[in-house]
């Protein structure tokens, strides 16, 4: 069954690559085409636009290929879900035992978050940035190897750790969507780019994603602290993984506050999103950098 799980991961990787290609293609076509005229927001206080003036949700860009792209992504999500479920059945625990499991789960989180936001806000352009990250993680997972080792004593807290990791991957996935939206915002001039959603919309999507991710991230850190308290008698020990997650949390906390501070909303706030996602990746890969200092396996020795 482990083999089947791995085949699913491989299939998902290929599907993501196809989805990415279709995104790029659709974008190239759209870029050349003219946009259907839209009512331009007129004046109004603080850029707020009256209901009647506000253009309806941006219509899905082109039917055909773009729709295939969406379905490719959803299919990839289905394969990844299957992969994780099969693996969970075999190992008897959530995907938290090693880098492979967590990388696949992280990839799942990104694809799931992207699928959700794409469905909700019809912003395919996000895929240009999100899909490569997800694909990259899956490729990384394959290089790490899918070996399933039994759990060392410190990790034998199935329920707590499964919840901890499940929340983490959703949070990380949403953070990656926020990063993609923020990056597109940053490359947009104030009036927007023709082939991209309007900057305000990108800004809003990024915020929506953080609004989902930040509370989860808070829970992730607290559950991690609970686990540390149970396993080692300390809820916080300034371990690099902990401090990295604290850094991540602070950056997104700063982002949420920056949005209500004059001079910070807009570009500066979106730069914080870039920094935040760098911190997320750093927290994820931190185990590798700091492997010699502290590893979460085989503690009681």
């Amino acid at each position: 069954m482990l083999n089947w799980s791995q085949y699913c991961v491989e299939a998902a990787t290929i599907l993501l690559a196809l989805a990415l290609m279709s995104s790029i293609f659709v974008l190239a076509v759209n870029r050349g085409a003219t946009r259907t005229p839209e009512l331009v927001a007129a004046g109004g206080g603080g850029g707020s636009v009256a209901l009647a003036e506000r253009p309806q949700e941006v219509a899905p860009a082109r039917g055909g290929l773009a729709v295939y792209g969406s379905w490719l992504t959803r299919l990839a999500l289905a394969f990844l879900t299957t992969a994780l479920v099969l693996r969970g059945i075999v190992t008897g625990h959530g995907p938290f035992a090693n880098q492979y499991e967590f990388a696949v789960a992280f990839g799942w989180g990104i694809v799931a978050a992207f699928a959700f936001f794409e469905y909700r806000y019809r912003v395919r352009a996000l895929g240009l940035l999100v899909l490569p990250v997800a694909g990259g993680l899956l490729l990384y997972a394959m290089t790490v190897g899918a070996k399933a080792d039994p759990l060392v004593p410190a990790l034998q807290n199935n329920l707590l750790l499964t919840v901890h990791v499940a929340l983490a991957i959703i949070a990380y996935g949403a953070f990656s969507v926020a990063c993609a939206a923020g990056a597109l915002y940053l490359i947009s001039p104030p009036e927007g780019r023709r082939w991209l959603p309007k900057p305000e919309k990108l800004d809003e999507i990024a915020y929506r994603a953080v609004v989902i991710a930040f509370p989860l991230m808070t829970l992730v850190i607290i559950l991690g602290a609970v686990w540390a308290q149970i396993a080692w008698g300390t809820y916080w020990s300034w371990d690099p993984k902990e401090t990295a997650s604290l850094f991540t949390w602070l950056i997104y906390g700063a982002y949420l506050h920056a949005r209500v501070v004059r001079g910070w909303r807009g570009r500066r706030a979106n730069w914080l999103l870039m920094l935040g996602f760098a911190a997320v990746l750093f927290t994820f890969f931190g185990n590798l950098f700091f492997g010699g200092l502290h590893s979460y396996s085989g503690v009681a020795k």
Partner: peptide
């Protein structure tokens, strides 16, 4: 942000 910078340094 200052706290964030310090935790980064500490990491």
């Amino acid at each position: 942000l200052v706290l964030g910078l310090m935790s980064l340094a500490g990491t």
